[in-house]
Amino acid sequence: MDEYSGYIKRQVASRLHHPDGRVETTREPAVWTLAHHGYRGNGRLDVWVYPTKAEALREGAKLAMACGMGEDDQARRDFGRGHWQKVLDRYEATHPETHLLRIQTAFLQPAE
């Protein structure tokens, strides 16, 4: 079995809400990513791939703490409580717009 096969899962790609109340949900193959742009310079964007959203959030929070949020009282409290998304939100709220630390899905595009 391919060691990365557990990373690709069908995620919600779109939801179409019809006037009659029906909802059509489309799922496509995707991976969870952690993207970081900040201290390395040269406009570099680092992207990591994780098998689950929970793992990506936890690792993103750890990275935020290592990138200065360990000095922030609110971030330390949220990290200690396992509120990973709050740590990431705090990172983005307290850093310049040029910094990014975000979890999101990346949909796979077939080669044509």
Results as ranks from 00 to 15, higher is better:
Ala66Tyr: 14
His37Ser: 11
Arg102Lys: 12
Tyr4Asn: 11
Ala75Met: 02
Gly70Gln: 02
His18Arg: 05
Gly38Phe: 06
Gly68Glu: 04
Arg102Met: 05
Gly68Ile: 00
Arg44Glu: 10
Arg44Asn: 10
Tyr7Arg: 04
Cys67Ala: 08
Arg40Lys: 15
Asp73Trp: 09
Ala66Asn: 13
Lys9Glu: 04
Phe107Met: 01
Glu24Pro: 10
Arg76Gln: 08
Asn42Trp: 13
Gln11His: 12
Phe79Tyr: 15
Lys53His: 14
Met69Ser: 09
Phe79Ala: 07
Lys62Thr: 11
Met69Lys: 13
Ala13Gln: 06
Thr26Met: 03
His95Leu: 08
Lys53Phe: 03
His95Trp: 14
His95Lys: 14
Val12Leu: 08
Gln109Phe: 13
Gly6Thr: 06
Ala111Ile: 09
Gln11Asp: 03
Arg90Cys: 03
Thr94Val: 11
Val49Gly: 10
His95Arg: 10
Phe79His: 12
Leu100Lys: 13
Arg81Asp: 05
Tyr91Asn: 10
Glu92Arg: 13
Tyr7Thr: 03
Asp2Tyr: 00
Val12Asp: 02
Leu16Pro: 12
Trp48Lys: 15
Arg90Met: 03
Gln109Glu: 02
His37Val: 00
Tyr50His: 14
Thr105Phe: 10
His36Ile: 00
Asp73Leu: 06
His83Trp: 14
Trp84Thr: 00
Gln11Arg: 13
Gln74His: 15
Gln74Ser: 06
Glu28Asp: 04
Gly21Asn: 01
Phe79Gly: 06
Arg81Cys: 11
Arg10Gln: 08
Gln11Thr: 07
Gly80Lys: 09
Gln109Tyr: 14
Lys53Pro: 04
Leu101Asn: 04
Lys9Tyr: 05
